[in-house]
Design a protein around this nucleic acid. Structure first.
Lengths: 236, 236
DNA sequence: TCGCGCGTCTTGTGATCACAAATCAACGAT
DNA sequence: ATCGTTGATTTGTGATCACAAGACGCGCGA
């Protein structure tokens, strides 16, 4: 009888709401600085206030959302200083994970990375769909998972949740450049991993992160708010 | 009139509960692996379930507490692997902050660090009070704050919340060794900062963290649980 | 003595409600 | 026109309740 039934979803409502909000944030569906209300989201999601409330607080704890002094909850937004700080942090932490993965990679890693990168290139030169973003994330996290440091992976996940939306901006504006140059850095990283060269792999990754961040500056894209106000919104 | 009145406490009940729990965790007042119940804490704190519930979820989001598959909430406990992973992460991240602080330290930093370290030595050789733990934390965070990276500081704070309780174990058992050797590493770090030598400062800090972690292994202190069960508890 | 049910109590989850503070809009005075 | 005020409405916080799922203890049977 067991083969007739697939397991039911035993997750809590709160968790499903959390994942839904997280995904929406990730895809940049909320404007940075936008305020989110408990009752509003609850109505939109068809639940009561309770699960939404807890999911929001969780995202606040993860710094994906911020709480103003008046307790209203907004989508986090960056100043240029905070943006570059987090880029620096990412270079350090993700560099560490990459180095570790490169020094002792599971055998199928390099091949899998090649496949993912090829998929990413195809997605860029093809329809340039959302798959570009997914492939990019998939590439990076395949490496980070290979580092076999679950707690580090959690930290990285959190950092991506904060910076993730901004990559989406480039995509939605139709810019393919940062993604295309990204795939070249990816190729470098793959080669370094094949040679078990941790240092080169890490530096390749750092350049990848840095170049993408720099792209935003170079194109003077209005990512940042002025006086903590109205950021990214104008772009979307 | 303003000088006659001090600001009233405008924080939410949830936040005060959170801070109280955080402090208790930090001081190792809860045994690792211990189960915390919402109603139990609410009764102990004299509040309703609501604020406790949200404070607990926040601590779960920060990985200071963990939620079992059956949804009960426990104090996080380490396996040796997870412990050493977090030590490695701390060496990398706190090393980064230290390097940055040493390269461009605010003028009074070195002097302030000397004072704190002297206070720590006095506390060790004197009554060996809880002030030892406080001074140690104060020393490290004086450096991390000097790095002027607020988001990095948040991450470090979180890592300390997870490993903090274990330092308390050594203190409660009356061991002063790890703290005394710590002060010697601190002195090295201070000298490196005076010379604006970021690399030496960072490596000094890494040795400080590593040596302390190693101390637990060397003394075969039963910090870790077996099969995720009964950790640290036997020690307290 | 050990294992297996079975009933009771406890626990987390989610819904609903009361309330105070914040937000927003219309309005009036300068 | 601009700013401050006032009133209505929205919003987060905290309390309480219903309910299903777990945890626990007791006793029965092997």
């Amino acid at each position: 009888m067991t083969e007739k039934l697939s397991p039911v979803d035993v997750s809590t409502l709160q968790e499903r709401v959390y994942l839904k909000l997280r995904q929406a944030l990730y895809q940049g569906k909320f404007a940075a600085g936008e305020t989110l209300t408990i009752r509003g989201l609850a109505a939109a999601l068809g639940t009561s206030a309770m699960p939404v409330r807890e999911a929001l607080q969780r995202l606040v704890a993860e710094k994906a959302l911020v709480q103003t002094p008046s307790r209203s909850i907004r989508v986090a937004s960056f100043t240029p200083e905070l943006f570059w700080e987090i880029i620096r942090i990412r270079m350090s932490i993700e560099g560490m994970a990459t180095k570790r993965a490169a020094l002792n990679p599971p055998p199928p890693l390099a091949g899998a990375l090649r496949d993912i990168n090829a998929k990413m290139i195809a997605a860029i030169k093809g329809g340039f769909t959302e798959e570009v973003l997914d492939a990019n994330k998939e590439f990076h996290f395949a490496i980070y998972e290979a580092a076999e440091m679950p707690q580090l992976l959690e930290i990285i996940n959190n950092l991506w949740l904060r910076t993730g939306p901004y990559l989406g901006v480039a995509y939605r504006m139709g810019y393919s450049d940062p993604f295309l140059t990204g795939t070249r850095f990816h190729e470098r990283i793959i080669q370094a991993i094949e040679r078990r060269d941790g240092r080169r792999a890490a530096s390749g990754l750092k350049v990848d992160i840095w170049a993408t961040a720099k792209w935003f500056t170079r194109h003077r894209i209005a990512i940042f708010g002025e006086d903590e106000e109205r950021p990214l919104q104008a772009v979307l």
